[in-house]
Design a protein around this nucleic acid. Structure first.
Lengths: 114, 114
DNA sequence: ACTATACTAAACCACATGGTTACCTATCAG
DNA sequence: CTGATAGGTAACCATGTGGTTTAGTATAGT
């Protein structure tokens, strides 16, 4: 079963699966608008290479953009992160309540069986 | 700054960025061990194609594996999901407390400035 | 009007990814 | 021992990704 949210989750998780893009999001975490060049400054890659990461984040709906003069300002859109977080939360019960007892059980079982 | 956890987060988020792999994890969410062929059964791809997804999940540390007879059993390892969840939690304060007020502020500011 | 700035766009490249088919290995059943 | 079953490995292919360089556009400053 493929849900309507699958494309969204694909885009968000793939966007998060890159350290440059995660750093961009961290930089925007305080909620301010930041121009592209300022965002790009810490990274040792070309500007065209960098703006590809911005496009990826935009496709995932993770950042907003507007033009101001010759600058382009970006800001964080946290909604997709919240959706990703909700997907992960489906496992929270598992890792909190089952982790100790069940894994211990399986570990023992595996040892017993070889 | 690239932390020692970056490779881990890359692997986990990239593993999650695919609907087939997310479904595998859902299938394993109840904590039981499931043989490869049973896991593969719902998916309309070849078995070698499918086992590549299992390798991807193993590289991310998301599943464990053991051989039992001629079957290979897989089970969920939730720790990496917890780490990913903790990374996302860094934004939780933002989307809960700032979302309404700050975004409203920025939206107004953008309207004001054109 | 001219020049510098802040990007964007396009073409290219190497490598990764997600799929395939063909083949191999290990185990179970008779 | 033989055949079927479970699954892994290798080679291949098309497409995507993350980077580059080169060139272009729009705005600001003088």
């Amino acid at each position: 079963m493929v849900t309507y949210q699958d494309d969204m989750l694909d885009a968000v998780f793939n966007a998060l699966g890159n350290p440059t893009r995660r750093q961009i999001l961290l930089r925007l975490r305080d909620g301010f608008e930041v121009p592209a060049s300022t965002l790009a400054e810490p990274f040792p890659i070309s500007l065209p290479g960098f703006t590809k990461h911005l496009r990826s984040l935009q496709r995932a709906g993770l950042i907003g953009q507007r033009k101001q003069g010759r600058e382009r300002l970006y800001w964080l859109l946290p909604e997709p992160l919240e959706i990703a977080n909700r997907w992960l939360d489906e496992y929270e019960a598992f890792w909190h309540t089952r982790l100790d007892s069940l894994n211990a059980h399986l570990r023992k079982q595996r040892l017993d069986e070889g």
